[in-house]
């Protein structure tokens, strides 16, 4: 299947700090993918590389088959909503739609107008005076008016209240369902994306921890409960993602590569959230007691 976004050993560095490192992933067309990770995991960096705002320091990124940096041909086919949905705050929604028409060769102003009318957003009010939810909707409408093949959304719902969040994601799903647009949206909140996404990429500490179709990920992971585990390999288990142990018993979250037939272990299904958390908790926090002048 065609990939809308492909990276290979992709890296980006700010000063000496790697914001993204050894990132290799492939996003097939037609997916609605979530990019999940805590703040500072490198989500924005990856999206900026994908939309061509920044240039990789290592590796390659290809969007719709082409490198996106300084490539207007890619820009024309990619819709992007940056974090905090930046818009010219003194422009009205109507003016922003006019602006989009002037800056894009392919531009569906009717689509944007219809969407905003459906959502009851005032056309003549400066967007700086709209609510956060309404502004996010304007930004989304502008991105959709490009009729993009790939839509990249950076934390589109982070600043919204739960109701606006839900509404935003619903309208997003409604509009991409019939156009076949691929979507990659980042979030640090699992609950937001769980409902709407069928593909998942987990980023943590500048690296990709997990990636794939949601269904595959859920079926590939199991919770095993059994006697205290001493580290010996268990048939059918490819990797122990996370384990917690009491004196007699171990609970393991594992990635399987076959049926677990060992009768010592009882098998349980896991929810997507548990899988993601298992990969995130695994990340280490670097302590800096010396810098704070407190004992470790």
């Amino acid at each position: 299947m065609e990939a809308v976004l492909e990276t290979d050993q992709l890296g980006k560095r700010y000063g000496r700090q790697w914001a993204l490192r050894d990132c290799t992933l492939r996003l097939p067309a037609g997916r609605i993918a979530a990019l999940v990770g805590p703040n500072g995991a490198g989500k924005s960096t990856l999206l900026h590389l994908a939309v061509g705002l920044s240039r990789p320091d290592a590796g390659v990124v290809r969007v719709l088959g082409e490198p996106p940096h300084h490539n207007p041909a890619v820009l024309a086919q990619v819709g992007f909503v940056a974090q905090d949905t930046p818009l010219y705050r003194d422009f009205t929604a109507t003016e922003l739609i006019t602006m989009g028409g002037r800056l894009n060769r392919r531009w569906d102003a009717t689509l944007a107008r219809t969407r905003l009318a459906d959502l009851g957003i005032p056309p003549g009010k400066p967007v700086g005076k709209l609510s956060g939810g309404q502004r996010a909707q304007v930004a989304l409408a502008l991105a959709l008016a490009k009729r993009p093949r790939l839509l990249l959304l950076d934390e589109p719902v982070a600043s919204l209240d739960p109701l606006a969040r839900r509404e935003f994601l619903q309208t997003l799903m409604g509009s991409v369902a019939d156009t076949g647009t691929s979507v990659l949206l980042s979030s640090h909140l699992l609950a937001d994306v769980e409902r709407v996404c069928d593909h998942l990429i987990v980023l943590h500490a500048a690296q990709v921890r997990l990636g794939g179709a949601v269904d595959d990920l859920v079926t590939a992971h199991r919770r095993l409960v059994g006697p205290r585990h001493d580290g010996a390999p268990i048939p059918g288990v490819a990797e122990i993602v996370r384990g917690s142990h009491t004196d007699r018993q171990s609970t393991l979250l594992v990635r399987t590569d076959g049926p677990v037939t060992d009768p010592l272990w009882t098998e349980h299904d896991v929810a997507l959230e548990d899988v993601i958390l298992a990969y995130l908790v695994d990340g280490e926090t670097q302590t800096n007691h010396a810098a704070w002048g407190v004992p470790a």
Binding site: H48, V51, G52, L53, H70, P72, L75, A76, V78, F80, A82, Q83, D84, P86, L87, Y88, R89, G100, L103, N104, R105, R106, A139, K146
Partner: peptide, 16 residues
Amino acid sequence: EQGTHRFVWTQGVSRR
């Protein structure tokens, strides 16, 4: 400063 460069530079017009 207002982050709008990410908005305007990702429309269909090159930065140049």
